[in-house]
Design a protein around this nucleic acid. Structure first.
Length: 592
RNA sequence: GGUCUCGUAGCUCAGCUGGAUAGAGCAACUGCCUUCUAAGCAGUAGGUCACAGGUUCGAAUCCUGUCGAGAUCACCA
């Protein structure tokens, strides 16, 4: 039983003993910084029924707790708020238990499998800033779920076929002159992306030409020769035309090679990769089955639909009249495939909020189909990353490229570090490693500290900070602690549990309080699929340590017990910072 | 137009199932490195929580409406 529960129970007793009130739902909150105490109990709700003043009630409960329990050392009542202080032994007990827990922050195993699908790129253009948010989120959520005791399968559903892929293929065929990533000196994904842009340029020219001949914009878009050719190419692809398939394979390989470099830089990975070229035909059987069971119905033209009007939605097409699949058909099939592969109890889709409606429909269909996996589906719908000018648009060249941005971050990290003269004693390799660590720390923390549901703003003209509420700030505190631990080891200071009474500095008490909160945060972050909770937490912890660090001296402390305690406290703070940062996918340097 | 999300300091963001004088960081200004890493610490200044009603002992938080921003409503994915 943790402290909070113990306190709640005692307050329960106090209410019963003093006022004959039976109340099981005791809400405690952390005491605000301006007041003395650790936990606060609000007595306002009882004022009316007891016909006593808040002060009276607060005093009575406070008095009872101090007299009849050992867990409250002091109390004060301000207005209707009863602030409780805990005796030092409570804090040192907490310290001891955290110190002895090798895997602090890892929750008990649940014997349950969760799938996290994220990244899911198109193979016609390189990754951009939006993908960075997606990938960091997905990877972090997977880590958080692991810490919550789940068995986690990370998947990536790669969109490697379709008309948009044919567009870059066609442009390459027409204008590529057999260029290769090697000959062009470009990463494969960037090379293919280049041709996607070339397609669009030429397509637009054709549209203008057609419009000049008197066609409407709409007709021009549909009749432009390049588009018609691309559609033709898609048909060839679907008919396994050898030449088309060969080109497709070649270009896809380039893209995959490029992506895997980018993924490696990002520090993300997958357990299973699904390709749409393998799954796009799935789902038709599901539709057949649904037709038989009456979940779907067929219209006169032969197209198949589901009626979701009873759910507050519309009718939705699930199979075209020519019998071909649409997006949602594929997703139904893929869901079936994934479940057969892994039998997971939960399936998280990390996909932008522009697809809210799609997933609402998909999950409702799965429910109506009464699938065994119909309950655990969750769309982790994250907000777009906007630029000051608004949404990123590839056509207008306002896309922030993932590779470029990561490289810029490394350059910034190098400049900052050198300005500060912080790499004395580093080999060139170690220095480069540090720049990487800091760069990715700054970038990931920047993107993950914001609530995933909210859209966020990124200003490319201002580089991401390395000071204040940032990744490097937290990394800095870790590095500082590492230095302390190295010195403590040299001095032969041994860390052991606190056995005799010591009196704690406020910053020490605050640190233990914050540390003890960590497992709850891990649980909460897992429940809400929200890395931002971990990011905020680890910042709070680092800040609390920074205060401790400046206010309390370790190696000048004469009391050896106190000194060992402070080293031990530093150690568990470092351990928790490292654990939390790992949940975010951020590594921490031992020197910086 | 229908549905959904959002509107908190100059800027970027916190604010849990309603609770104290609304919190951080950046930017601005003031102090603090002969003492464990100053990518730091302490402090000052900055807010009618879009607006108007309502519920409540109590509302940034819940409800209704207004204004503003965005997403979505494809036989695209």
């Amino acid at each position: 039983m943790n402290i909070e529960q113990t306190l709640q129970n005692h307050i329960c007793e106090a209410l019963k003993a003093e006022f004959d009130v039976i109340e099981y739902n005791i809400a405690l909150q952390p005491t605000k910084k301006d007041f003395e105490g650790s936990y606060t109990f609000v007595v306002f709700p009882y004022v009316k029924s007891l016909k006593k003043s808040p002060i009276e009630i607060g005093n009575a409960i406070g008095e009872y707790l101090v007299k009849n329990t050992s867990v409250v050392s002091k109390y004060n009542v301000v207005q209707g708020f009863l602030n409780l202080s805990l005796p030092d032994f409570i804090w040192t007990n907490l310290y001891n238990s955290i110190l002895s827990d090798e895997n602090y922050g890892q929750l008990p195993a649940k014997n349950e499998t969760v799938m996290v699908e994220y990244s899911s790129p198109n193979t016609n253009k390189p990754l951009h800033l939006g993908h960075l948010r997606n990938n960091f989120l997905g990877f972090s959520v997977a880590n958080i779920l692991k810490a919550n005791g789940y068995h986690v399968v990370k998947t990536n559903l790669v969109n490697d076929r379709g008309i948009h892929i044919c567009k870059s293929m066609l442009a390459y065929q027409k204008f590529g002159n057999l260029e290769t990533p090697e000959s062009a000196g470009l990463k494969g994904d960037h090379l293919v992306g280049k041709y996607y842009v070339i397609f669009d340029k030429n397509y637009k020219v054709e549209i203008e030409e057609l419009k000049a001949k008197g066609l409407s914009e709409e007709d021009a878009k549909k009749q432009a020769p390049l588009l018609l050719e691309a559609q033709e190419m898609l048909l060839k692809w679907e008919n396994n035309d050898p030449e088309t398939i060969a080109l497709w394979q070649k270009m896809n390989e380039w893209v995959f090679a490029g992506f895997s470099q980018t993924y490696e830089k990002m520090g993300v990975s997958f357990d299973k990769i699904y390709r749409e070229s393998n799954t796009y035909l799935l789902g038709k059987e599901t539709v057949e089955e649904g037709l038989k069971s009456g979940v779907f119905f067929k219209k006169e033209d032969g197209s198949v639909w589901i009626d979701l009007t009873d759910e507050g939605l519309d009718q939705k097409l699930v199979l075209r009249k020519d019998g071909t699949s649409v997006y949602i058909t594929q997703d139904m099939g893929t869901a079936e495939l994934k479940y057969n592969d892994f039998k997971m109890s939960k399936s998280i889709y990390v996909v932008g909020n522009e697809q809210d409606y799609h997933f609402e429909v998909l999950f409702k269909i799965i429910k109506k189909m009464n699938r065994p996996y119909s309950l655990g589906n969750f769309h982790l719908s994250y907000g777009m990353v906007d630029l000051p000018s608004g949404k990123m648009k590839s056509r207008e060249g306002t896309v922030v490229d993932a590779d470029d941005l990561m490289q810029e971050m490394v350059d910034t990290a190098r400049d900052r570090t050198n300005e500060l003269g912080k790499i004395d004693g580093f080999t060139p390799t170690e220095a480069e490693e540090l720049y990487q660590t800091l760069a990715m720390g700054a970038l990931k923390y920047f993107l993950l500290k914001v609530d995933p549901k909210k859209r966020m703003l990124f200003n490319p003209s201002e580089s991401i900070d390395f000071q204040g509420n940032t990744g490097p700030y937290i990394q800095f505190n870790y590095a500082r602690i590492s230095a302390i631990l190295r010195k403590a080891e040299q001095l032969g200071i041994e860390i052991s549990p606190v056995s005799e009474a010591i009196s704690l500095h406020p910053t020490e008490q605050e640190l233990i309080f914050t540390l003890s909160d960590y497992p709850l945060k891990v649980e909460e972050a897992g429940r809400d699929y929200s890395p931002s909770l971990i990011a905020q937490y680890v910042y709070t912890l680092a800040r609390a340590y920074s205060q401790f660090y400046t206010e309390v001296s370790i190696f000048n402390e004469e009391d050896k017990n106190l000194q060992a305690f402070r080293v031990g406290l530093s150690k568990i703070v470092a351990g928790t910072i490292k654990h939390a940062m790992e949940l975010l996918g951020v590594s921490v340097p031992s020197r910086m």
